[in-house]
Design a protein around this nucleic acid. Structure first.
Length: 967
RNA sequence: GCGGAGGUUGCCAAGCCAGGUCAAAGGCGUUGGGUUUAGGUCCCAAUCUUGUAGAAGUUCGCGAGUUCGAAUCUCGCCCUCCGCACCA
């Protein structure tokens, strides 16, 4: 084990031993309650998770050093189907699943035998979950996360289930939970709904809802499914496939004609279907059915293009507005010969007139005809072109189309506005139903079966449109911090489209609905207010409270303050003092001050969390702030286990060291941007952390001393003291504004550079330098602690400080020591060095021995300061006027003009000392530094009366821009 | 389709909201120099082009506009990524 690894382990052990991160309520201190969503414990985590949790920890550590009583708890998520699914697949001997688990297990075991032995134990989800929960908690510790583990639990715990039951009973009481029919992708063979993971093909398939229109026919209905129900006014005929099988069936008590292939689908969609008669399509072709709106008779015609496997296999024809229908009808007009056998004459067909029922700019009476002719489509077989034409018409009519006056009560209205109303009207006269299909094909289950849409009767869902709920939650969002605020709009959009959301399933692990135990609460719906549970989880465990004791009255008392401890104690058998303790603890910690996670959680978890908080808790307990950080990607692509492009979290401390990972993860990208993992940059970060450590080892002291101006110390010392305080001020602001990258860069790279530059300065007395460095180190080590907690603890103890730096004070910037003048002078010196170097470069090898520097006259400094103070815009005339109005400047007329020209050219003012004298002082003070940097003597002159100026350079001097002569 | 984010100098990545000090921070890479340098070390400098002494020119997806002044504001266009529901 490397030294650094030993150091990290050592401090993790000590933190644990001294319970540094285990926190209890302390009324005397401000609290800060931070959460990051608990991980799903069905496998090993990777560095992407590491980034998210580390960001949380950096915030927690910063707040802790700011003096807050910080609670950062963690638990494990195991409800839902993934763990169950994986366990089932392992038991079934699925080699892919087995290999996937072995890959994860090899991270934790050295030999293949141990891996196999552990895998053999994975016969139920609980064992699997508890194994990964354990190793993940170790991985978190190894990363230096300051977690209060006493409060850990899993979502599969019986006690936690009682909490979720309480939550859902509350929803039920409020009327937020409803039951209804709900369509899902469904595997007929497995008899189960299928999720994305269950699919072999068609992973992106969604459910498309068709309107099934029931056209009166004989003593029942011809049922045709459509996406364009408003076109019923344009119907001219029905299309039936002549050779495919159709049925007369009794569907929920009505007689329907549909394709035979649709029977099973209807059954899956919660219809009762009894087939009365099976027949070939040709049998009904030539017969008549009746229109919806006026009951006029319309013929049934044959069409080969009808796909009986799609929807009901019955298609009503609107040739004026549907390119497929137009082409099919045109073909029959052109060649009616095949119709005789159905008892249809050529005259009958030619007598059908196309109906235009939608007005639209840029199209004729029959838009379908336009679209077909524009593409020069010749036959029904040109499927792709027809599809394209259909898309065009669909879109154009939807947005621009207006119902013509042959559309009864809907005439004159826009299609996009009228669609729903047409369906509603048909529903009122019992002419519609709903039919679902996947929006793409094929969709195939892993078992090889074609996936269908199943309608779950009695599906429980949360109705986010329940009166008042959404508005109240919008209010909660408006008063909440979202960092970065750019993500706020994503919440708003989610809130807009959130309607009914199924909250329970029939399979998987989880809490049963208290009022309908056949259903298991779905795993995104059981993890929304659990932050509250952290506040009491350890009490429940330590006092061995039984699930039965955790009654609704118990939770009502703790979380909502209902009832009295005595009463609740009586009904639950829990000591009233304990009840009071728990209630106090909840009241101390809640609300959740900050919840940090990824943007992927916005449309689901985070939105649910807000809704559920609003539903259950009073306003004072709503989440205060949500912060978001993006993913970590490897070499341009998302990390993916299947591609093997992942670095497991467990390897981080071994391969890089926790501190290096933490610094790198913070410094490589701002939280809100996608971070690219570059192996090379990580090793560069190793060097930087080591250097930090080396500097600390050399200069950190138990008792630092700070030199100030009064001590008559060198400019360099005053400069570094000022710089360090500036950096502390900046870093504090950066963290407060969630700019963790800027913080990390300043606390590492920038500090290293500052220190190196200081140490490079010659002529600083050793005592002054060492004392100053001790002062710098004292600040720096604190500043770096959230990033590199292990190394900082090590240094802290090495210099003999008591306690842990993890709970030491965050440095406060000493504003009195921030000296802009000194920092500016330093800038001037540095830019002078750069200028001299540039001249040297252009001298092409000619060596200069001496650099004569001419500092601008005092009036110019006054002029610059005067412009700055006047806050003028950079317009030559304005600045001239400003300066010329002052006698002191006017006497320098010509030179004033050249300064102003320069300002205009530079597009603004630049850094310079406050006066000629202080600029000369700064340059003189740094003369030895410049000499050692440049290898030449430095002579500083006043440009007003230079002792030596053979090339008359002095006149070019400007404040902050000394004129230079090299010889 | 709907909604969102974004395109910056070899790569990564700041800046953009609050226009000027932006040839544009920081890191990586590259080049040169230094350090008796165990070490995938550390330090310094340079790294758009040109250059007659510290300067000039051309850049921030493309095109136009506003302004004394635009990487930043406005409009149009092109391209990339993400989410869209039962899935954690």
């Amino acid at each position: 084990m490397s030294d650094i690894a030993k150091i990290e382990k050592k401090w993790q052990k000590r933190w644990r031993k001294d319970h540094v991160f285990e926190v209890d309520p302390d009324p005397k201190r401000k609290k800060f309650f931070l959460t990051v969503p608990y991980p799903y414990v069905n496998g090993a985590l990777h560095i992407g998770h590491g980034r998210t949790y580390t960001i949380g920890d950096v915030i927690a550590r910063y707040k802790r050093m700011q003096g807050f009583n910080v609670l950062f708890p963690m638990a494990s998520h195991m409800t839902g189907t993934p763990i169950q699914g994986m366990v089932d697949r392992i038991k079934a001997g699925d080699p892919v699943a087995i290999e996937q688990y072995k890959r994860d297990l090899r991270l934790y075991f050295d030999t293949e035998e141990e891996v196999d032995a552990q895998l053999a134990k994975f016969v139920d989800p609980w064992t699997t979950a508890s194994f990964f929960a354990k190793v993940i908690s170790q991985d978190f510790d190894a990363l230096g996360l300051g977690i209060d583990w006493r409060r850990r639990f899993t979502t599969g715990d019986k006690e936690y289930n009682k909490f979720v039951e309480w939550q859902y009973q509350k929803f039920k009481d409020k009327g937020y939970i409803k039951q209804g029919n709900y369509p899902l992708l469904y595997c007929p063979k497995d008899g189960n709904p299928v999720g994305e993971d269950d699919l072999l093909e068609g992973a992106t398939a969604k459910i498309k809802e068709f309107t099934a229109i029931k056209w009166p026919f004989e003593d029942g209905f011809l049922v045709a499914a459509t996406l364009r129900p408003e076109t019923i006014f344009g119907v001219t005929n029905m299309w039936i496939h002549p050779t495919k099988k159709y049925v007369w069936a009794k569907v929920d008590g009505e007689k329907w004609v549909v394709a035979k292939a649709a029977v099973e689908k209807l059954r899956l969609q919660a219809k009762t279907v009894e087939v009365l008669e099976t027949f070939s399509g040709s049998k009904i072709i030539g017969k008549k059915f009746r229109a919806i709106h006026d009951e006029h008779e319309i013929p049934i015609l044959p069409a080969e293009f009808v796909d009986v496997n799609n929807a009901t296999g019955v298609v009503y024809s609107v040739p004026g507005h549907a390119p497929f229908d137009y082409i099919a009808l045109r073909d029959l007009w052109d060649n009616p010969s095949g119709l005789e056998k159905f008892g249809i004459s050529a005259e009958d067909v030619r007598g059908i007139s196309i109906i235009g029922m939608i007005d639209m700019k840029g199209y004729s009476e029959f838009p379908a005809k336009d679209a077909v002719e524009r593409r020069n489509i010749k036959s029904q077989k040109e499927g792709e072109k027809l599809e394209d034409a259909t898309q065009e018409i669909y879109k154009a009519e939807f947005y621009d189309g207006v119902m013509k006056d042959n559309c009864e009560q809907f005439s004159g209205r826009m299609i996009k506005d009228v669609k729903e109303d047409v369906v509603e009207w048909m529903r009122s006269i019992n002419r519609v139903d709903v039919f679902y299909e996947p929006d793409e094909r094929p969709v195939v289950c892993k078992c090889g079966t074609d996936v269908q849409v199943g309608v779950f009767a009695g599906q429980w869902f949360l109705d986010y449109t329940s009166p008042g709920w959404k508005d109240k939650t919008r209010g909660a969002l408006a008063s909440m911090d979202i960092v970065p605020d750019t993500y706020r709009v994503l919440f708003e959009n989610t809130f807009d489209w959130l309607t009914q959301r199924p909250c329970a399933r029939k399979r998987g692990i989880g809490t049963r609905l208290p009022f309908d135990p056949d259903w298991i609460i779905e795993s995104l719906s059981d993890s929304t207010i659990y932050m509250a549970y952290y506040t009491i989880a350890h009490h429940i465990r330590n006092n061995k409270l039984k699930p039965d004791q955790l009654t609704p009255a118990f939770f009502d008392y703790i979380f909502l303050g209902k009832g009295t401890p005595l009463k609740v104690s009586k009904s639950t058998g829990i000591a009233s003092t304990l009840l009071e303790t728990m209630q106090n603890e909840f009241r101390y910690w809640y609300p959740n001050d900050q919840r940090h996670t990824n943007p992927a959680h916005i449309p689901n978890h985070l939105s649910f969390a807000l809704f559920h908080h609003v539903a259950i808790f009073p306003k004072k307990y709503w989440i205060k702030r949500i912060s978001i950080s993006e993913y970590l990607v490897m070499a341009g692509g998302k990390m993916s286990k299947s591609k093997g492009s992942v670095i497991p979290l467990v390897e981080v401390p071994k391969k890089y060291s926790a501190d290096v990972f933490r610094v790198y993860a913070m410094a490589a990208a701002e939280p809100a941007s996608l971070m690219e993992w570059h192996e090379r940059d990580v090793s560069a970060m190793t060097g930087r952390t080591r250097q930090f450590y080396d500097i600390m080892s050399k200069y950190a002291k138990k008792t630092p001393k700070v030199f100030t101006k009064q001590d008559n110390v060198s400019m360099a010392t005053r400069w570094i003291v000022s710089r360090v305080n500036t950096i502390v001020e900046n870093c504090t602001n950066f963290i407060e504004n969630f700019r963790l990258r800027d913080y990390a860069i300043n606390a590492t790279s920038e500090m290293i550079r500052v220190v190196n530059q200081y140490l490079k300065r010659p002529g600083i007395p050793k005592e002054e330098r060492d004392a100053t460095m001790a002062y710098v180190c004292d600040i720096w080590v604190r500043l770096a602690t959230p990033l590199m907690p292990h190394m900082c603890e090590e240094i802290w103890s090495k210099i003999g400080r008591d306690g842990y730096i993890s709970v030491a004070d965050w440095p406060k910037p000493n504003k009195k020591l921030i000296d802009r003048e000194v920092e500016t002078s330093y800038e001037v010196v540095e830019s002078t060095i750069r200028d001299i170097r540039e001249i040297v470069k252009l001298m092409k090898g000619k060596k200069a021995k001496t650099a004569h520097l001419y500092v601008a006259p005092e009036w110019m400094f006054k002029a610059m300061n005067s412009i700055r103070k006047a806050k003028l815009s950079i317009v030559v005339g304005d600045i001239m006027k400003h300066l010329m109005s002052n006698e002191d400047f006017r006497i320098h007329g010509k030179e004033v003009k050249s300064i102003v020209d320069r300002i205009a050219k530079e597009n603004g003012l630049w850094a310079h000392s406050s006066s000629s004298k202080s600029e000369r002082f700064a340059l003189n003070d740094s003369a030895s530094h410049m000499k050692s940097e440049l290898g030449m003597e430095i002579v500083v002159h006043s440009s007003e009366k230079p002792e030596y100026d053979p090339q008359n350079k002095a006149r070019f001097a400007l404040p902050g821009r000394v004129s230079i002569f090299l010889e």
